[in-house]
Structure formats: structure tokens, C-alpha cells
């Protein structure tokens, strides 16, 4: 997994550097240092360092994968966070937060149905009061008109 992540970083660095060399000029029209100057330095350094680290990692051999039982929980939390992002766009801040918390707590805090129900209502309510009323901050609007 670690090596795969390093290859993703390398791919990003290669793409970043190619844009720096192909699309961004090293010097401006007036002969000063142009927009491509700094990105080229950063890109080349990033590629060189990442290749160095990948070579080190390959030399060390394949590290045993962590069989931590918490991987499932982390991936679930990430998936729920992404789902929350989608829900926000559809239903707006308040409703999406109620749905997200109801779902997440029922999966993480199993067996505490009453507590989960109370928290799924109370936390969004408190957050709504804090952001929308007290701080007068923006809350995500719903894609469709909601009755409240």
C-alpha cells in the first residue's frame, strides 16, 4: 500500500512537472523570471525525492501489510464522509447532517438507539444555531426547496 501511495505521488509530480515545462514559460516577455520558474524547481525536486524514496522502499522489500481490524472502520468513516458531501448538495446543511449523524452513529455506536436518535437531532440543531443564527455564517443550501 505504501509503495502504491508513493507511485500515486510520483504520477502527480510527473504531471505537475510536465505542465511546468510544457505550458509555463521560464522567462516572462520582459526577460524576468516567469511563471514556470518556481514550478519547474519544485516539480523536478519532487520527482527526484519520490524516486529516491521508492527505490529505498523497494530495496527494503515489501513490508507486511498491517492487518489492523480498524481498517474497516476507517474506510467506512471515509465513505460516510463522502456520502455526507453528496447529501449536503442534495438536502442542505441541516437535513444532510441529521441523516449523516443518524447513519454514522447507528453504525459506530451500535445498540445505543435512543442516544443516537437524540444526538442526531441535537447536534445538527446546535450546529445550526451556532452557524446560522449566532455566527451568521453560510450553511449549505439544498438543491431542492425544503419546507424549512
Amino acid at each position: 500500500m505504501r509503495i502504491a501511495f508513493l507511485f500515486v505521488v510520483l504520477a502527480g509530480a510527473v504531471y505537475y512537472t510536465s505542465v511546468a515545462f510544457l505550458d509555463l514559460s521560464f522567462l516572462s516577455r520582459t526577460g524576468r523570471l516567469g511563471p514556470g520558474f518556481f514550478p519547474r524547481i519544485v516539480g523536478v525536486a519532487a520527482i527526484a525525492m519520490t524516486i529516491w524514496v521508492i527505490v529505498d522502499a523497494l530495496r527494503e522489500g515489501r513490508a507486511p501489510d498491517d492487518e489492523s481490524s480498524t481498517w474497516g472502520d476507517v474506510l467506512m468513516l471515509m465513505a460516510l464522509a463522502v456520502a455526507y458531501a453528496v447529501l449536503l448538495r442534495l438536502f442542505g446543511g441541516l437535513i444532510a447532517t441529521v441523516i449523516y449523524l443518524g447513519l454514522t452513529l447507528s453504525l459506530l455506536n451500535r445498540g445505543h438507539h435512543r442516544q443516537n436518535a437524540v444526538l442526531s437531532i441535537a447536534i445538527p440543531g446546535a450546529v445550526y444555531l451556532l452557524f446560522d443564527r449566532l455566527l451568521n455564517a453560510n450553511m449549505p443550501p439544498a438543491l431542492f426547496d425544503m419546507p424549512f
Binding site: 468513516l77 460516510l80 464522509a81 455526507y84 458531501a85 449536503l88 446543511g93 447532517t97 449523516y100 449523524l101 454514522t104 452513529l105 459506530l108 455506536n109 444526538l119 447536534i123 445538527p124 450546529v127 452557524f131 455566527l135 455564517a137 453560510n138 450553511m139 449549505p140
Partner: peptide
């Protein structure tokens, strides 16, 4: 396990509010 989802909510709404 209760604090975690709450932090996700605050991070999300905090980011959007900017």
C-alpha cells in the same frame, strides 16, 4: 465513536461557511 462524526460535521460546515 460519538466525537468523531461530530468533528466531521464541524469540519464540513466550517469549511463551507468561509
Amino acid at each position: 465513536r460519538v466525537l468523531g462524526p461530530t468533528v466531521v460535521v464541524i469540519c464540513t460546515l466550517g469549511t463551507f461557511s468561509v
